[in-house]
Design a protein around this nucleic acid. Structure first.
Lengths: 161, 161
DNA sequence: CAAAACTACGTAGTTAAATACATAAATAAA
DNA sequence: TTTATTTATGTATTTAACTACGTAGTTTTG
């Protein structure tokens, strides 16, 4: 084992990122193997629109947990692919309402069996003695209650007493 | 809960990344709160050199699991901070051997109590019913044995029978 | 109801990683 | 011992996220 993996919890951020990147990369290849022209990074937007039908830019950003500029650049790509379209909100002229196109909806139908396969493969990988998805949820909840920074500062001040 | 978190395992890559980013960002603030001028992204390199003393660029890259160009850019920053130095290998003239400077070693001593606090805070966050670090290790092992792509392709071909 | 504050969206620039490509030194093979 | 292959390093470019900032509507307040 290398030093970083041995360092344990201190390098957890690096390892989360590495694992995420591996899965994303393979995900792209899975879509390709089905002959589907779809990038994994589009998934959060598409999946959200599939369930919520019509949303503004900021609403999508909040749903997927990205900033709005990041969301805008994803939306631009998806619009280029003609998977989504947008129109101005009649009531609030600042808002741009986003929807799937028929082509987008068709592609979702095509992707459903792929998602099923991915779900099974990911379950194989992540469902061990410690379930990765649940572990993430539990950690997210802990942070929600008190952030890493807050906890560290508290431990620091306790140590200084 | 938002749609993405509800989608479960399919969005696991996004969620790993998000969690990693949160921890990295707070990590930076923890160093700052101790008045230490250190970026979390430098940790893997510094920690590796602390344990291995002298390594070449590619050896460091392998240890920390980054590509060598990424590693080179980290090394450039660390050299600018005067935390590391490098000299040509006498035997193999292609190699650049990297070491901590005395300043780098001093900084490590300064950081040790910070790492201790971080370790405790991270343990609080990640040690739940499902231990996040162990969950990552288990998932990494699964992938090592058979990648996400390989598993997906196999499940696909089984479905086509 | 005019001014102030807030919200939605967009652009520009930054960051931290990657890939692709190039070169030079070392090693292996013909 | 040339030639071919591999290895080590470096540079340029790309990618996918971010922050900072600006503008134009909307809402709240004095």
């Amino acid at each position: 084992m290398n030093i970083i993996d041995e360092s344990g919890i201190l390098a957890i951020s690096t390892r989360l990122q590495r694992l995420s990147e591996q899965l994303r990369k393979d995900g792209a290849l899975v879509y390709k193997s089905y002959g589907i022209d779809f990038e994994p990074k589009w998934f959060p937007v598409i999946y959200t629109l599939y369930h919520k039908d019509t949303l503004s830019v900021v609403e999508i950003a909040n749903e997927i947990g990205y900033t709005h500029p990041s969301t805008i650049s994803l939306l631009k790509e998806l619009e280029k692919q003609k998977l989504i379209r947008s129109k101005k909100d009649k009531i609030d002229e600042r808002k741009r309402l986003i929807q799937l196109t028929p082509k987008g909806q068709e592609m979702i139908e095509e992707m459903k069996p792929v998602w099923e396969v991915m779900k099974n493969a990911l379950t194989e990988i992540t469902n061990n003695q410690n379930n990765l998805l649940k572990a993430i949820e539990e950690a997210e909840n802990k942070i929600l209650h008190q952030s890493f920074l807050q906890r560290a500062l508290q431990l620091k001040s306790e140590g200084e007493e």
